[in-house]
């Protein structure tokens, strides 16, 4: 590495250009002589590593703002990102990881106080389709997934993904048998539904029906323990966020939703029980409970009170105890409605 720097000190702009040239080469058909190709691919790996060390610094030097700025500008001036993304499957594992880190870093680089990556992605939003479809490919999923999560830091990009048909696919990706890929998809899903508050609130209001139908049946009632546990936790995060209060009110007025949450409360897993409680409390605390919610709570009053009697978190949690006390008060005070 050191020798490389000393023999030919390339400017950041040159590094980007050379990378681009080699990416174009790599993307073309591979009928060049094998040895030559190998050489070029190895040069490409070196270049991408150099991009990374300009952006992140290395053991000898901190990154230079000016160099990062030049690099970013040159990178987005032409279609380098698209080339890099489409070329990624042709690179070796270490280079893929370097490329992922480069792409991640570029999303945050400001040029003249603008995130030019955001502008680029807006104009090339179809790249998101490529990244998301990565979850169908065991080899690419983790790399594309990591890039995707960085890209949805930009609100416009997140909005595109939320409103695209891809959103439905996530319900399946989260449950892929490969644990590492499923976990990555879950992390992206969570990011999509929590990062940009106003966009999320808008999305949930517009897509309430299908989204929560899927959420309930595929995630909360999944046979997969990890899916249920993540889903009920995320549901709590979503509903407890003040920006989603309209959605929350709607959610806690449905008896189907209440039934599902009560089933989760009965799970043998403590972690799921606790997370389920954080959603259940919203049903109980709702001051305008619809009659059918009240009747379910009344019908299960003694069971619920018994459950809460020795319902504890592993460690002391004042907030939890306070919430529990309030829920118990609410439920205890419920009386069967007089028949009209």
């Amino acid at each position: 590495m050191k020798g490389l720097f000393k023999s030919k000190p390339r400017t950041p702009v040159e590094v980007v250009r050379q990378t681009r040239d080699l990416l174009i080469y790599a993307n073309r058909s591979s009928d060049t002589r094998e040895s030559k190709r190998e050489e070029k691919m190895s040069e490409l790996s070196k270049l991408i590593r150099e991009l990374k060390s300009i952006l992140y610094g290395n053991s000898e030097a901190e990154p230079q703002a000016e160099a990062c700025c030049q690099l970013t500008q040159e990178f987005f001036k032409e279609n380098t990102l698209r080339l890099l993304i489409t070329c990624l499957p042709k690179l070796n594992l270490e280079t893929r990881k370097d490329a992922t880190q480069v792409v991640a870093n570029l999303q945050r680089q400001q040029v003249h106080s603008r995130l030019i990556a955001s502008d680029y992605l807006e104009a090339n939003i179809d790249l998101m389709d490529v990244l998301i479809s990565g979850y169908d490919n065991t080899d690419m999923a983790l790399h594309y997934g990591a890039m995707l999560r960085e890209c949805i830091r930009h609100q416009t990009v997140a909005r595109y993904v939320l409103e695209s048909a891809h959103m439905k696919k996530f319900f399946d990706y989260i449950q892929l048998p490969n644990f590492d890929i499923a976990a990555d998809a879950a992390a992206t899903f969570k990011e999509l539904l929590t990062r940009h508050k106003s966009t999320v609130a808008e999305f949930l209001s517009k897509n309430y029906d299908w989204f929560f139908a899927e959420y309930n049946s595929k995630l909360l009632e999944s046979t997969n323990y990890i899916t249920r546990r993540q889903a009920v936790k995320l549901l709590g995060d979503i509903l407890l966020d003040r920006s989603n209060s309209v959605v929350m009110t709607r959610y806690v007025s449905s008896r189907d939703n209440l039934r599902i949450l009560m089933n989760l409360l009965r799970e043998s897993s403590k972690s799921i029980q606790i997370e389920a409680f954080h959603v259940f409390k919203l049903f109980a605390a709702n001051q305008n409970k619809p009659p059918d919610i009240v009747s379910i709570l009344v019908a299960n009053k003694s069971k619920l009170l018994r459950l809460f009697a020795d319902f504890k978190t592993e460690k002391e949690d004042e907030q939890f105890e306070a919430d529990k006390a309030q829920v118990v008060r609410e439920i205890a005070a419920l009386e069967p409605r007089d028949r009209p």
């Binding site: 190998e38 691919m41 790996s45 070796n92 594992l93 080899d139």
Partner: peptide
């Protein structure tokens, strides 16, 4: 190419 690739790519 990097010496790790041989190990990584054809992952059974």
């Amino acid at each position: 190419m990097a010496q790790h690739e041989g190990e990584a790519s054809p992952r059974v």
